[in-house]
Every structure is written in structure tokens, then in C-alpha cells.
Design a protein around this nucleic acid. Structure first.
Lengths: 145, 145
DNA sequence: GTCGACCTTCAAGTCGGCTGGAAGTCAAGG
DNA sequence: CCTTGACTTCCAGCCGACTTGAAGGTCGAC
């Protein structure tokens, strides 16, 4: 039986985050001793699952649905979610590549004003989503371990 | 001379957003008539620039620095920002591709439990950032025009 | 002279994924 | 008994890019 602090140390997930996950239903409510949470080692695997799936781009809400529905076999749920997310990630890759090409063109730009520069013409990157390259996508490292 | 509403209609950028951009310094303060903003057609090109650059993954803060510094030629600033962002977008593409491979594996998964499934083994996607596939990256469409 | 369309400012709310602090509980050790 | 330390709950705040709402100003048309 692990206290929340021990789980935090072993998983690298902060205690506050564990409580937050529980409040969302991403983690089940553990047994309690004198009001304090006591976890089985199982939770560590669960956290590894959450971590991996989160890195694959799923929200905590999707993850909750994935891990909390015990009626279907894991593989079916995993497959359903994966199939749902695959087109999205493909779109993301396409768009990221379009942005990459744009940045390369920009890097070679010699225009003196924005007005003169075809980089900013109306159709540039038009059908692409805004890529969240900065804060959310690239600045974090780490995870469970 | 365009009112804020006309600019909004022509550019597809809401009036509230135009004021917000102005408050950040992304747009310059326009002339006023009886307290109301009057824009020149120039602002439309500026908004197109903002839109394209934002789609390339830059924050409004970066964009403000790009468009408001009039001392250097446009090309130099564009190049500096592009060169700064290129490695980030390359990393994003690499990670998105790793996630793509993971999702394909997940789609073919036959495991009955999470415990049995190597998809969730510790090293899976370990060194990858969390890709913001959901909300910020893929759900929006639109832009200026 | 008042209606409606349009504009103004400022403050607060939204989304997701947390993080941090305040204030209280509880068991073990000196 | 008292301290220490780890736990508890609840709630505010953070990031970025906006959006929304309240309360009011300005204009032309009828």
C-alpha cells in the first residue's frame, strides 16, 4: 500500500496532479486509511498508461473514458481511440510540413517590406490550422518514470 | 477610412480581437474620429501578415516584435524568426511522426488488458513532448479573409 | 427626440492541465 | 505534550488567445 507521496516519488507525478486526476476520474478513488489515500502498485501502471496516451495527444477527458470503461476489452477501446486520432495526427503532420516549407521560404526572404513579400499573400498557409509550436507543444520534457 | 466594424467584416477578424491586438501592440493605434477608430486599408495587409505568421506557430508577442520594429528591414526580422522556429517545427514533426507510428500500433492492438500491452511500456513515446492534437491544434478553422 | 446601429472602455469568463497556498487532520517520536 | 511531516480539502492563479457582458457615447434617420 502506497501513500500519495510514495506514488508521486515513484511515478514522477506530483501529488497535486494525482488528486487532480482522481477528481477527473482518470484515476479511481483509492482505499483510505484515516482519510488518507492508499494505493496499490497497480496505480503505477495506470499512470504509465495515462502518460503514454497523453503524449499521443489525447485529453484527460478522453483518457478517462479510455481507462474507466471496464466493460469492453482494452484493445477495442484503444483501437477506437487510435482510429479516431489518426486522421487528426495526419492532418497535424501535413500542416506542420506546410509550415516547415513556409519557414524555409521565409528564411530565404529578401523582401524589404511586408507589402512586397509574397510570403504573406492571402493564400499562404490558408487552410492550415494554427500550429501550437511554442508553449504547449515543445517546451515541456519529462513525464512519468 | 474604415471603422472597426468594416475592418472586421473585410478581414474576418472580430472587432474585439482587433482591439485586443491593439492592446498587445500587434496592431498600431489608429487615428480616431470622435473617439472611434478609423483605419486605413493598410491594416488589412497587416492582418494578413499576422494571420499567416500566427499559422506558422508564432505567438502574438513574437508577432508584435516582428511587425512593430521598423528599424530593420522586414526580411531580416522574418529570417531571424524563421530560423528560430525551424528547429522547433522540425522537432514537432518528428514527434508527431512518432505518435503516428504509436497510433498505428495501437490500432492493431489485440491485448486484453493494459497490463499485457507493450504499447504502454515505459519507454513508449518517452522522449516526446505531449502533442496538443486536440483543442489547440486541430479543431479550429478559419482565419482572415 | 428618440430609435437603432455602431462604437467605446473595462472587467471577467473560457478552455485544459495543472500548481501552489491556506488551514486543518493525524500518527509517530522525543 | 508538542513538534514534525505527510497528509487532507478547497480554492485561487497561471498560461495564451480570445470572447462576452455591462454600461455608456455618438451618429444618422425619421
Amino acid at each position: 500500500m502506497l501513500t500519495i507521496g510514495e506514488v508521486a516519488r515513484r511515478s514522477g507525478v506530483k501529488a497535486s496532479t494525482l488528486r487532480y486526476y482522481e477528481s477527473l476520474g482518470v484515476l479511481p478513488e483509492p482505499e483510505r486509511v484515516a482519510g488518507q489515500r492508499r494505493y496499490t502498485a497497480e496505480v503505477l501502471r495506470r499512470l504509465a498508461v495515462v502518460d503514454v496516451v497523453q503524449r499521443a495527444g489525447f485529453s484527460l477527458e478522453e483518457i478517462r473514458d479510455l481507462v474507466s470503461a471496464a466493460d469492453e476489452p482494452a484493445s477495442r477501446r484503444v483501437r477506437a481511440l487510435a482510429d479516431h486520432k489518426l486522421p487528426q495526427i495526419e492532418a497535424l503532420i501535413d500542416r506542420a510540413q506546410a509550415v516547415h516549407r513556409w519557414l524555409q521560404a521565409a528564411s530565404a526572404c529578401e523582401c524589404e517590406t511586408f507589402d512586397a513579400c509574397s510570403l504573406f499573400d492571402d493564400r499562404a498557409l490558408r487552410d492550415d490550422e494554427r500550429l501550437p509550436v511554442g508553449r504547449s507543444a515543445l517546451l515541456r520534457t519529462g513525464g512519468s518514470g
